[in-house]
């Protein structure tokens, strides 16, 4: 018993030590974001600012248009998430509940393309977007991302589990195919859709390389791109950099705390990296 308690104690100690290391960068970020310039450079480091400098956030927003970036990020995230959910729902329904010629081939081709990393598509997609005249526009930020083979695959698996009799019942009750999908399948697949949606929100919010190359003007930057540019614009004012970083990170942390059940189970089930 003593041995058991001892090993439990060691386990807690190890886990707690690891947890502190995991949290430290966030704590340090928030702490720095609220310091005065002199406290930032203090050695040994000051953990709790003597006076909380909330105005750092305001200053950062004045140096670079973070409000604008924030709105852009929200627009891009919301629209690409809604778009992806819609295309995914429709395609997953076709793949799971409709039998049609060529279904197997189309599905196999799509699955095959999942092996190709997105980085490889970067250059031709850039050319396509510029040929479409979409460079430096919301279209470029949103439209290439409103369909995902992985999400279709995931939702299709979920749709398979809905019994056929339910679709019969719905037809008899006066549903067309589309109404059945909308009023029965979609509500039933809510957990899967929430997971898909959340992973998309996280991915979309944090996306960097694509928004970096398709936007030129400040007005269209998303938060990560704006933040990256800010490192040059703000110089070495770490309290402002940390305030800006906090503005980028915090919304996702809040979302995670609210919806962590869906996010963690989604990751565990799908093994996808955001």
């Amino acid at each position: 018993m003593v041995k058991d308690a001892l090993s439990k104690g060691i386990i807690y100690l190890l886990l707690a030590f690891g947890a502190i290391l995991m949290l430290l960068p966030f704590v340090w970020m928030i702490s720095t974001s609220l310091k005065s310039p002199s406290e930032v450079m203090a050695m040994p480091p000051v953990w709790i600012p003597s006076e909380w400098q909330w105005e750092n956030y305001q200053t950062a927003s004045e140096v670079a248009p973070f409000g604008r970036y924030f709105i852009n990020s929200i627009i891009v995230t919301i629209l690409s998430t809604i778009g992806e959910l819609l295309t995914t729902i429709l395609a997953a329904y076709a793949f799971s509940k409709i039998n049609f010629y060529g279904k197997g081939i189309v599905f196999a081709v799509l699955l095959g393309t999942m092996m190709v990393p997105g980085e490889v598509l970067l250059i031709p997609n850039f050319v396509t977007v510029s040929n479409l005249g979409w460079l430096d526009s919301y279209e470029a930020l949103i439209i290439p991302w409103i369909a995902s083979i992985f999400s279709i695959f995931l939702l299709r698996q979920y749709f398979f589990s809905v019994p056929t009799e339910l679709s019969y019942a719905a037809k008899v009750d006066g549903c067309s195919d589309f109404k059945f999908l909308w009023y029965v399948m979609v509500p039933l697949a809510k957990p899967a859709l929430i997971t898909i949606g959340l992973l998309k929100v996280i991915g979309s919010w944090n996306a960097f390389l694509w928004p970096l190359i398709v936007t030129n003007s400040q007005e269209l930057r998303t938060l990560p791109v704006g933040l990256s540019a800010f490192t040059t614009e703000a110089g070495i004012k770490y309290e402002l950099l940390m305030a800006a970083s906090t503005m980028v990170i915090l919304p996702m942390l809040i979302l995670f705390f609210i919806m962590q059940k869906y996010i963690i189970s989604g990751v565990a089930r799908t093994g996808i990296k955001g």
């Binding site: 960097f208 800006a244 970083s245």
Partner: peptide, 14 residues
């Protein structure tokens, strides 16, 4: 799990 949901750019700056 926290770092997973955060922006690579932001945490890199931190």
């Amino acid at each position: 799990f926290l770092p997973f949901v955060t922006s690579v750019v932001a945490v890199s700056i931190v």
